[in-house]
């Protein structure tokens, strides 16, 4: 056993991080809030060119989670996980020409993310993996989404007929892998929120000293780090399980990652706001963006409660 990043893995993560810092700095990402569709197609293709939508298939889940952690940290918007796993059923994903999302149809209301920009939707169902052109849906766009960088629309029933493209076990596997990639995004969100709050706590002064010097604030930040590191371990373990680099059950490990990274992202998101005081409640400061993305990602591929129930069923 050697559960620590190899040099190649470290280089991969450093590489994607500096690419994102250069091409997707937070101010560029948030500028998307002022546009009707938040995804810039050219930038989506740039992501594709760095391998974001092919790394899982070409290298494996361990490499993919390292990349997705950085995408989460940078708050890059879009249906990243689905687009990165759809190459077998939808053409043009690896090059970034086709944007693929999912439709979670079990409960009402059915909400689709990035309604104006997603091209193809996949549906995980008991009959198998289904495929639908987004243009076939009747949708009502929500005026004020929680996360402005995750626009949503309500899909009206009845849903149009979808084409079955694969078996139910393939569908289950697609979903499992999407859960792992989403948990990696959540890990990144948790780390991003923590980093922002940590820097603020060093620099903001009250009572003549940096607020990070108060134990109350120090302990909040310490809890953020603890949640993030525990989550990181769960996410990396799930990636190993999916890659068969270990004996853990990949389905259970995926749910564990989603629970732990989901908790970490939500906790770090809200605590980051708290550490910023009044600033945290403003639109301008990014603290709120991490929390909102944490909520959006918790609701992708099953919320914490859902995955906790899956784990409970294995006990």
């Amino acid at each position: 056993m050697d559960f620590w990043l190899s040099d190649d893995e470290r280089d991969l993560q450093d590489g994607i991080r500096s690419f994102l810092l250069g091409r997707f700095p937070i101010d560029v990402v948030r500028a998307g809030e002022e546009q009707p569709g938040v995804i810039d197609r050219d930038r989506w293709r740039e992501l594709a060119a760095t391998g974001v939508f092919s790394v899982a298939a070409d290298i494996g889940m361990r490499a993919a989670v390292l990349v997705f952690e950085e995408l989460g940290r940078a708050l890059v918007p879009g249906p990243l996980a689905a687009s990165a796993l759809a190459a077998a059923w939808v053409s043009g994903t690896a090059t970034g020409d086709t944007i693929v999302g999912v439709l979670e149809t079990l409960d009402d209301p059915v909400l689709v993310e990035h309604p104006a920009q997603v091209d193809v939707l996949l549906i995980v169902s008991d009959e198998g993996l289904l495929r639908l052109d987004a243009s076939a849906l009747t949708m009502h766009t929500i005026e004020r989404p929680l996360d402005t960088l995750t626009p949503v629309a309500v899909v009206r029933r009845p849903l149009p007929a979808a084409t079955r493209v694969d078996t139910s076990s393939a569908a289950r596997q697609f979903e499992r892998d999407a859960v792992v990639l989403t948990s990696a995004l959540q890990l990144g969100v948790a780390l991003g929120a923590t980093h922002l709050a940590q820097e603020y706590a060093k620099q903001r002064e009250q009572f003549g000293r940096p607020i990070g010097g108060f134990q109350a604030v120090k302990h909040l930040l310490a809890d953020m780090l603890v949640k993030s590191e525990v989550a990181r371990s769960a996410v990396y373990a799930a990636a190993c399980a999916v890659d068969g680099a270990g004996t853990d059950d990949a389905y259970r490990a995926a749910s564990v990652a989603k629970v732990m990274a989901g908790e970490a992202a939500l906790f770090c998101g809200k605590t980051g706001i708290q550490v910023h005081g009044g600033m945290g409640f403003t639109w301008e400061v990014h603290a709120q963006r991490y929390w909102k993305r944490a909520v959006a990602l918790d609701n992708s591929f099953g919320i914490i409660d859902h995955h906790a129930a899956i784990i409970a069923a294995t006990l």
Partner: peptide, 28 residues
């Protein structure tokens, strides 16, 4: 609310907007 919490507006009869604003109120 699950996925309806992605909306700050109510969705038809579902008061998602009210509850999401309630959540944000807590943060404040």
């Amino acid at each position: 609310l699950e996925r309806a919490s992605l909306s700050m507006d109510d969705i038809d009869e579902l008061p998602s907007g009210r509850h999401v604003h309630g959540r944000i109120h807590g943060l404040k």
